[in-house]
């Protein structure tokens, strides 16, 4: 009987409770969305300590601001928007891109086994971090977090076409990085 599907916007009632100042409802929202927001930020900034700090900021900001939102708030997109802005602000403040050359990670063979697949995944994380954050955000939001380009455009304040172009560029960059990594590792 228990058909397992994600709440299809079914948290709207909880959101309304939170909008009206119900701290318990907000805590439920926090518990639901904390892992995915933290994961998204971790991919964006490639530093779990920093991602944890930013995630805290995101939810504290959201808690303070949710009472000022309009009815019918699209909670998930709203939280991701706050998270993206937090990461972008941090990036602007630091203006530091930490780029680990893929060659240094030492992939010894083409990716086949589970460990190799894990290594490839993590190498692509590094390559993702080397991208301009607006590109990596577009890629993550579309490919990993399932937002449409229309939604992403609204979240980032750009057109749908611009969001799509940024994601395309990011994907191509990751493909090139993967190729460089594997071809560089071949004897």
């Amino acid at each position: 009987m228990e058909e397992v599907v994600r709440m299809p916007g079914g948290d709207s009632l909880i959101v309304e409770q939170a909008r009206h100042g119900d701290a318990l409802a907000f805590e439920a929202i926090y518990r639901e969305y904390q892992p995915q927001i933290a994961g998204y930020l971790c991919r964006l900034v490639q530093d779990p300590e920093l991602a944890a700090d930013l995630t805290q900021d995101v939810f504290i900001s959201a808690y303070k601001a949710i009472g000022r939102t309009q009815p019918g708030l699209k909670l998930r997109a709203w939280l991701y928007t706050i998270a993206t802005n937090a990461a972008m602000s941090h990036h602007r403040r630091r203006r530091v891109v930490q780029w680990s050359p893929l060659d240094d990670r030492g992939t010894d063979s083409p990716t086949e086994g589970p460990e190799d697949r894990y290594a490839a995944r993590e190498e692509l994380s590094d390559a993702l971090h080397a991208l301009p954050p607006e590109q990596s955000a577009c890629l993550l939001l579309s490919a990993r977090d399932g937002f449409t380009f229309e939604e992403i455009g609204k979240m980032l304040g750009i057109s749908e076409a611009a969001a799509k172009t940024r994601a395309y560029r990011a994907r191509l960059a990751l493909a090139r990085a993967l190729r460089a990594s594997e071809e560089g590792a071949r004897p």
Partner: peptide, 17 residues
Amino acid sequence: GYLRRADAIVAGWPQTP
């Protein structure tokens, strides 16, 4: 081929690393 593989890797990233 690398593009398709990179797409698959990104899609397979866990929600929380």
